[in-house]
């Protein structure tokens, strides 16, 4: 085997070992991944301050001060509403369960009166028993889910701390790696860094702005329709929207459930679906063209496949990171194909 073949095998082994290591420690990666994404999102703002000649530490401190004010302002405005909605939701769950049971019972009576054979076979009774045991099991877990969500609040302390160091030392780290690259690969590696930066920048910044807009629009739409928990559902819709294609559907489901429980009719569900469709229309035709988030240039089937694979490997965080990872693989592959002198 030639020297070149050994280098290729060595490189593949190192990449595989790195992937295996990351996979093994994936449970503790979340705050680091979120911090890296945040640092990445904030780096252009930092760049603006730095191109004015400010020191990096001063730029980071200014940025943090601005974000602290914005965050505290949002918290003052939104947190009381969120806590109110969560406490109302938890106290209303028994009533909602009774309402649903009542609606289903009246529906059962209607159907069984019209079609007595269904009553004779006990089809609805069996289905209801199964559904009831499933719902009991899931509703019993709601406090546990909420407790888990609140334990994530500790991340609010950890993430800004890690992000601070990523912002402060990120460029130094990249420069250090850049200095160590053998000169004959400099242009290739630099082209790889720049192309990945371009694609990831488009994706993360685009998704962040887009999801914020979708979250706010959904919140306003739900408030207009009079659906309860508009703030929480708006935030869920915004967060879910960060997952391409599948996200918008995931955001609609909680609104449909809450809307149906409150209004007990189909027309509200149609209104909610229409409202989310309008939000998606605005997103696709106004927001996306403005923020150029189409930059990832992947086929829809590739995107859906990668999201499902991401979910299988690392759950929700895997779904969110699947598309950028595929973009990195694609950019690397294209550079290797174009530049045969990479290795």
């Amino acid at each position: 085997m030639s020297n070149k073949t050994y280098k290729i095998i060595g490189l593949i082994l190192v990449i595989c070992a790195a992937i295996w290591l990351l996979f093994s420690i994936r449970s503790i990666l979340m705050p680091f991944v979120i911090s890296a994404v945040l640092a990445y999102l904030l780096s252009p703002l930092l760049g603006i301050l730095e191109t004015k000649g400010l020191k990096r530490i001063i730029s980071v401190l200014i940025l943090y001060s601005v974000f602290l004010i914005v965050f505290l302002g949002s918290a003052v405005l939104l947190l009381p509403q969120i806590f109110r909605e969560v406490s109302v939701l938890s106290s209303n769950i028994p009533e909602y369960t009774r309402n649903i049971k009542g609606s289903i019972y009246s529906l059962q009576l209607n159907i069984e009166n019209k079609y007595p054979i269904i009553k004779q076979k006990g089809i609805i009774d069996d289905s209801l028993k199964n559904a009831e045991s499933f719902l009991n099991e899931k509703t019993a877990q709601i406090p546990q889910y909420l407790a888990e969500a609140f334990s994530m609040l500790s991340l609010f302390v950890l993430i800004p701390f890690i992000t601070f160091f990523f912002l402060l030392e990120g460029r130094t780290g990249i420069d250090f790696v850049f200095q160590k690259i053998p000169s004959r690969y400099t242009e290739t590696i630099l082209s790889l860094i720049c192309e990945i930066d371009e694609v990831l920048g488009n994706f993360f910044r685009g998704q962040f702005i887009e999801s914020s807009c979708v979250g706010v629009l959904s919140m306003i739409g739900l408030l207009i329709l009079g659906v309860d928990y508009a703030v929480i559902i708006g935030i869920i819709a915004g967060l879910a929207n960060m997952i391409p294609y599948l996200g918008p559907f995931a955001g609609t489901v909680p609104a449909l459930i809450v809307g149906f429980i409150k209004f007990q009719n189909i027309s509200i569900m149609i209104k909610i679906i229409a409202m989310f469709s309008i939000v998606q229309f605005i997103d696709n035709n106004i927001i996306q063209p403005i923020i150029l988030s189409h930059g990832v240039n992947l086929h829809p089937v590739t995107v859906i496949f990668s999201i499902m694979a991401g979910a299988q490997v690392a759950g929700v965080i895997g779904m969110f990171l699947a598309v950028p990872v595929v973009c990195i693989i694609k950019a690397t592959f294209l550079i290797i194909v174009r530049r045969k002198d990479l290795i």
Partner: peptide, 8 residues
């Protein structure tokens, strides 16, 4: 204190 000499 505030401005980067290297940048200048």
């Amino acid at each position: 204190l505030f401005f980067d000499k290297e940048f200048e």
